[in-house]
Amino acid sequence: MALLRSRRAIPYLLMAPGLLWLLLFFVIPNVQMLVFSLSEGTLRTGFTTPPDVWDIENYTGSISKFSGNFSNSIVYGGLATILCFLIGYPLAYAIAFKGGRWKNLLLFLVIAPFFTSFLIRTISWKIILGNDGPVLAIARDVLHLVPANFSIIGSPLAVVGGLTYQFLPFMVLPLYVSIEKVDRRLIEAAQDLYAGPWRRGGMIAGALFGAFALIALQVGLGYGAFIGEDAAPAAVAAAALVGALVGGLVGAFLISQSFIRVTFPLSLPGVFAASILTFIPAIGDYVNPQLLGSPKTQMVGNVIQGRFLDQNDYPIAAALAFLLMAGILLAIFLYAKLLGTEELTGGTA
């Protein structure tokens, strides 16, 4: 009996040190941050904490004061996630289905950016997109596509581009894992049952998605007003047209019925995991907006960072961090409902 009882304690003993660490340095700090978010005071003056004071003003005040930063975070994070998906899905598909003997090398190249520092990668984009960098040298000086005073650094485009780059591997890897798992026999079965090109359905779906994506990009990046306020509706219409055209062509010619009826639905858990893994770090980032953006493109991470580390305004910063967390949880919840995926944690896997 004593032996049985001690055996039953084994898993708890094994887990105790690690879970204790997470309790002390993950759970309690978050509780403490909640306490701070309802407190008053600064590092210098000292803090008055609950139950002496319950300062809800930290929340209500910062929502209205920093709404611009919150919307920047959501828009840039969302756009980066969409772009990562558009680049990442075909890439993951190609590696999983067409990789052949190059598969391991391709996967290695996808994670190669992780072998350099996050900051240095961002600095590289500052070089590439800079006013004296190669991209503008070609677009501005050789092709004359953009006016002489046009710059990319400081614009939302640079921030979203940086975020897209940084978190693309987070998108590709989970997608690869789930596409790789798709049973090829199911695709063959679909083709035996006359699944062909997607054609009309693909054209309509592709056109709708393409139009949506380009409108989102154009409005989100603020290029609607770029040509002048009056031209904004025309610019949006043009974006929608281009998006619809490209999307329609892709849908009609490149996407097969077996893909849309078999492969894609089976990879949905991966799509879910991948977009969450991309969206969460993207929405909380402050390095890209700081190095690639301008004061106008600051995200909520910049405010949290500044309040905590420069101004030592802990109550407001803590409230902002909690609002960010709440927003992410809400987004995950809605998204899980939308995709109908219960495999948030991969179950027991």
Partner: peptide, 20 residues
């Protein structure tokens, strides 16, 4: 529970540690 720290943005992990 093990999944939660991975789903928490780094800025929240860092900020909460700073508060404690």
């Amino acid at each position: 529970f093990i999944f939660v720290p991975m789903a928490t943005p780094e800025i929240v992990l860092g900020a909460s540690l700073l508060t404690i």
